Deep mutational scan, measured.
Amino acid sequence: MIINNLKLIREKKKISQSELAALLEVSRQTINGIEKNKYNASLQLALKIAYYLNTPLEDIFQWQ
C-alpha cells in the first residue's frame, strides 16, 4: 500500500492544485485524482512532483 502525502505537503508549501498542475503541465483534475488516490502517478510525474515541491519522493509517496 502507498501512503500519499501530496496534499499535506502541497498545502504546507502554500501551493494550490492549479499552480502545481500548471508547473507539471497536467490538469488540476489530475492532481486532485492523485491526492484522492483515484489515480496513480506515473514514475515520471511522481519525480516531477518531488522536484517542483523540493521534497524527496519517498516523503510524498511512502510504501507501507
Rank of each mutant, 00 (worst) to 15 (best):
N54A: 12
I15P: 02
I3M: 13
K7S: 08
I15E: 00
A21N: 02
A46V: 06
K38L: 13
S16V: 04
K38Y: 13
L24P: 00
F61P: 01
S27L: 02
K36V: 09
Q29Y: 10
S27R: 09
N32E: 15
I60C: 02
I9E: 04
Y51H: 11
E58W: 10
K13T: 06
Y52S: 05
K14R: 12
L23F: 14
N37L: 07
K13N: 11
K48S: 07
K14E: 08
R10M: 06
K36A: 13
L6F: 00
E11R: 10
Q29M: 10
G33H: 12
Q17T: 08
A41P: 15
K38G: 07
Y51L: 09
I34H: 02
A46P: 00
Y52F: 14
N4R: 03
G33W: 13
I2S: 08
R10G: 03
E19S: 10
K7P: 03
I3E: 07
L47K: 13
I60M: 05
K48D: 05
L57T: 04
L43H: 10
P56A: 08
I60R: 01
I3D: 05
A21H: 01
Q44G: 13
Q17A: 07
Y52P: 00
L20G: 00
K38E: 14
Y51M: 10
R28W: 15
N37M: 09
L47I: 12
S16P: 05
N40F: 12
A41M: 14
L20Q: 00
E25L: 11
Y51C: 11
T55K: 03
L43Y: 14
A41L: 15
D59P: 02
N4H: 04
E25W: 06
I31L: 12
T55C: 08
L20V: 02
E19C: 08
S18Y: 11
N54K: 12
I49G: 00
L43C: 15
A22E: 11
Y39N: 07
Q17P: 04
A22G: 11
L47Y: 10
L53S: 02
A22Y: 09
T30C: 15
D59G: 06
T30I: 14
L6R: 01
T30Q: 09
A41W: 06
Q44T: 14
I9S: 02
L23A: 15
A21T: 02
R28D: 10
Q44C: 14
K12A: 15
L6M: 09
I2L: 12
K13Y: 08
D59Y: 09
L23V: 13
L43W: 13
R28F: 09
I9V: 11
M1V: 11
S27E: 06
L57Y: 06
E35D: 02
V26G: 01
R10A: 03
